[in-house]
Structure formats: structure tokens, C-alpha cells
Design a protein around this nucleic acid. Structure first.
Length: 421
DNA sequence: TCTGGGGTCCTAGGACCC
DNA sequence: TCTGGGGTCCTAGGACCC
């Protein structure tokens, strides 16, 4: 018998912050999105006082934050990525098959664990992760990935570990589990199922007209139905190279000039190019976009987008920048208040499969420069060296007023402890 | 004043080919 | 009067995830 486990860190970003700030124990904590725009992570104390709606604008909850003395943080992805890596390394000791699903979640496959007490095994995972990282996690175990997700949600409400093995037990749980909370069933699909009179996961599981489900929810929905029935359709996946790479940001201040958009696009090309080179791929085209603030309905709105194709695959930041700047020449319109811009790299293939351009004998990519730039930035920190076209002052740069330290990745920011004598 | 970012998968429909 | 059929590839858009 094969089982799937899902381990999920509780309020991951908040938990990371709290590891290095034990004084925040018991106090509500939230973490804001880029640009300090809205709240994206909440400790259970924050949820308890009614701050827990994903992407609630920060400015709309400021009163509550003050009233309840909520600790507020800007996102510190350097810290979260590093803490995530530590958690995942511990999980590797518990199964030979681990799929890192996101920064705070992983699937585990248990094949040949029939005689094991999976409840106890899950509890051990929790203890070890908490002991070694300070991060609390929930563990759900069942017959398929979708069911393990269900079990994980139950685990969080209960003791932290929940195992569903036999059919009757699973059905009992599914009878009280809303169909809209199933992994993979979003708003649109839940509404469609409601129209069929399906409200619980159990009703979905036993719904007979599979052809109708296929037509309404596509193959994805059909597979979820089978997964609820204990038939595994979704297998463990290994990390693959990204098929799309993007970099975009909202601006910290309003942007009106082409020059500033040129800087921002150059910066995003730098970020995207680094990601592309890290997976040793090249892209054949780049898309750039700029747009106004859709929330400011009283202002004229504009969304400009365009692409450039390269004669050969590239991962050269400077070529990406040049392409995006050409696009900007096409799409820029004066007189708008721009709020966001971004770049997308398309048609990505492994470096080894790059088709060189017949008429481009010496190659337009300056591989050596990119390599050296990457090396310097890795050794001395991000943006130690970069294209001057990214600008110096960068008035448009995302704001982050409540950023914590890079406790685990920077000697300069390591935690200091004062000892009273 | 102030509203995130980065991905994946699936399908329908158009373009194109023989 | 009457104008095929089958296949592949690509892309845009929808839905969903964390």
C-alpha cells in the first residue's frame, strides 16, 4: 500500500519572523506583500482578531493593527527561502521520495510503510522540524495527494497530525468537508458543482455522471474526483526547468517618464536573466509590459505590452534589456501614471538545445560578462554590479518599511544577543 | 496616500500542411 | 448545382495554486 503525506508549515512567513523574535510569541503577526501592499500571511492570533483575508490591503487594516498591537513585517524572501531549505532537508530523512511543492509545503511518498504507525511517524516529523528550525508544521497522510491535502487541513485544526487510511473513515471526513475547500477546486468550479447540488467532498466523490464532470471541470476536475475515491492520478513530480520566467513589480512611487520605465525594465531583465542562467536555459523571445493602476478608476487606464524575438536563444541580460527597451519604444505613451511593469521570458529551452543563428557567427551573447557578473553578485551580494541602465536612484523601487534582518544568510545581519551581567 | 508576484495545466480555435 | 478530410502545432485565455 502506498500513502501520500503532505507537510505544510503553519503561517510560514509569520513563523519565520517569530523564530528570531521570541518576544512576539502570543502576539498577532502579519507579513505584507511586496511594496507593503497587502497582508499575505497571518499568525493564528492575527486570524483570531479578524485579520486573515488573503491580500487585504494594508491601509484598510491599519486601525486594527494599532488597536491589537499587531507586529507587521515586509516580506523577507531571503530569510523565508533559507528557512524553507532547512525544513525540506529534515523531511528528506523521513522518506526517499520528497516533492517540494512550494516554499512551505512538500509531498512525501510512503511506499512499503504498511506496518508503520504513521501517526507516530508524522508526530516525529513535527517534533524534529520544530526542534531544529523552530517552525511548526501540520502533517496529513492518506491514499492520494488530494486526500492528503484534506487530511492536512484537518490536522491543522486538531493535533497537528491526521491520518486517513480506511474507506469509512475517509467518507466520514469527506461528508463534512466543503467541496470548495478541496485542493484544485477554486471559485469557478465550486460554483459549477453547487449548481449540480454538490456541496461536500463526499457528494462530489459519489457523483455518477463523470462525463459531465469532465465537460464542466475538464480533465483536472475529473482527476480530483478519482483522487477523492482513493485512485491516485497525481504522482510525485521532480523539479523541472521553468517553462516561463517572469519578473514584475508594482512601483513604490508613481512613474510618468519613459526613462524610469527603462530603468525598471532593465532591472526586471536582470532578475529574470539570473533565473534563466541559474537553470542553464536560454529563451527565444521576451515580452515587456507596463500599466497604470487599475484601482485608480478615476484616472485614464492603459495597458501596453509587446514582444521581441531573438535570432538565437539567449540568456544574456544585456540582450534582454535591449529587446525590452525596443518594446518600450513601441508601447510607451506619455501622460499616464504608471504603477507596474514587468518582463516575461518565453520559449525557454535548455542551453544545449540552442539553435545558433547561421548569420550570427561570433554570437551576440556575451557569456563571459554574464558569468562574471553572476559570480560577483553571488559572492558580494545582490546588485553589487549591474547594468547602469537599471538606474542609480531608482525612485520607482518597491518599498519595504518593515523588513527584518537576513538572520541566516548575512554575517552583518546575524542575530545579536545581549547578556545581562 | 496606500490594493503582490510567480508559476502550472487545460482547452478551443486558428493556421498550416498534405 | 456542385467546393474534403485529417492531422499537428501554436497561442490566448481561463482556472487554479501558493
Amino acid at each position: 500500500m502506498r500513502f501520500f503525506g503532505l507537510v505544510d508549515c503553519n503561517s510560514f512567513y509569520c513563523s519565520c519572523e517569530r523564530v528570531f523574535r521570541p518576544d512576539l510569541r502570543g502576539r498577532p503577526v502579519i507579513v505584507l506583500s511586496n511594496n507593503d501592499g497587502c497582508a499575505i500571511a497571518f499568525s493564528k492570533e492575527a486570524k483570531a482578531i479578524g485579520i486573515g483575508t488573503m491580500c487585504e490591503p494594508y491601509f484598510q487594516i491599519k486601525d486594527k493593527i494599532k488597536k491589537y498591537n499587531v507586529a507587521v513585517f515586509s516580506s523577507n524572501y531571503t530569510l523565508y527561502d533559507n528557512m524553507s531549505r532547512r525544513v525540506m532537508e529534515i523531511l528528506r530523512d523521513f522518506t526517499p521520495r520528497l516533492e517540494i511543492y512550494s516554499v512551505d509545503e512538500a509531498f512525501l511518498e510512503f511506499d512499503g510503510f504498511d506496518d508503520w504507525d504513521l501517526n507516530e511517524y508524522g508526530a516525529r516529523m513535527r517534533r524534529e522540524i520544530l526542534r531544529l528550525t523552530g517552525i511548526p508544521v501540520g502533517v496529513g497522510i492518506s491514499k492520494t495527494k488530494v486526500l492528503s491535502k484534506v487530511a492536512n487541513k484537518i490536522a491543522k485544526k486538531k493535533t497537528g497530525v491526521f491520518v486517513m487510511k480506511d474507506e469509512d473513515h475517509i467518507d466520514d471526513v469527506l461528508k463534512t468537508f466543503p467541496v470548495k475547500d478541496i485542493w484544485g477546486i477554486g471559485h469557478a468550479s465550486a460554483n459549477k458543482l453547487h449548481m449540480l447540488g454538490i456541496k461536500t467532498a463526499y457528494e462530489f466523490k459519489i457523483y455518477k455522471d463523470e462525463k459531465l464532470i469532465q465537460r464542466m471541470l475538464t480533465k483536472t476536475g475529473r482527476e480530483i474526483q478519482d483522487e477523492l475515491r482513493g485512485i491516485s492520478c497525481l504522482s510525485m513530480e521532480s523539479p523541472e526547468d521553468k517553462k516561463n520566467i517572469g519578473a514584475s513589480r508594482s512601483f513604490g512611487a508613481s512613474v510618468y517618464s519613459k526613462q524610469e520605465l527603462r530603468e525598471a525594465l532593465a532591472e526586471f531583465c536582470t532578475l529574470a536573466g539570473e533565473k534563466l542562467r541559474r537553470q542553464q536555459s536560454v529563451c527565444y523571445s521576451v515580452t515587456a509590459f507596463v500599466h497604470t493602476n487599475p484601482f485608480k478608476e478615476e484616472l485614464p487606464q492603459y495597458y501596453g505590452v509587446g514582444s521581441r524575438t531573438f535570432s538565437s536563444g539567449t540568456s544574456d541580460t544585456f540582450r534582454l534589456i535591449k529587446g525590452c527597451h525596443e518594446v518600450l519604444d513601441d508601447i510607451f505613451k506619455l501622460g499616464y501614471e504608471y504603477k507596474k511593469a514587468g518582463v516575461l521570458l518565453n520559449h525557454i529551452v535548455p542551453q544545449g538545445q540552442n539553435q545558433l543563428d547561421l548569420f550570427d557567427q561570433q554570437g551576440q551573447d556575451n557569456k563571459k560578462i554574464s558569468q562574471v557578473v553572476d559570480l560577483i553578485n553571488k559572492k558580494f551580494g545582490q546588485r553589487t554590479i549591474q547594468s547602469a541602465s537599471c538606474g542609480i536612484n531608482q525612485a520607482w523601487r518597491t518599498v519595504a518599511n518593515f523588513r527584518s534582518s537576513k538572520y541566516t544568510t548575512s554575517w552583518k545581519e546575524i542575530l545579536r544577543i545581549k547578556l545581562d551581567s
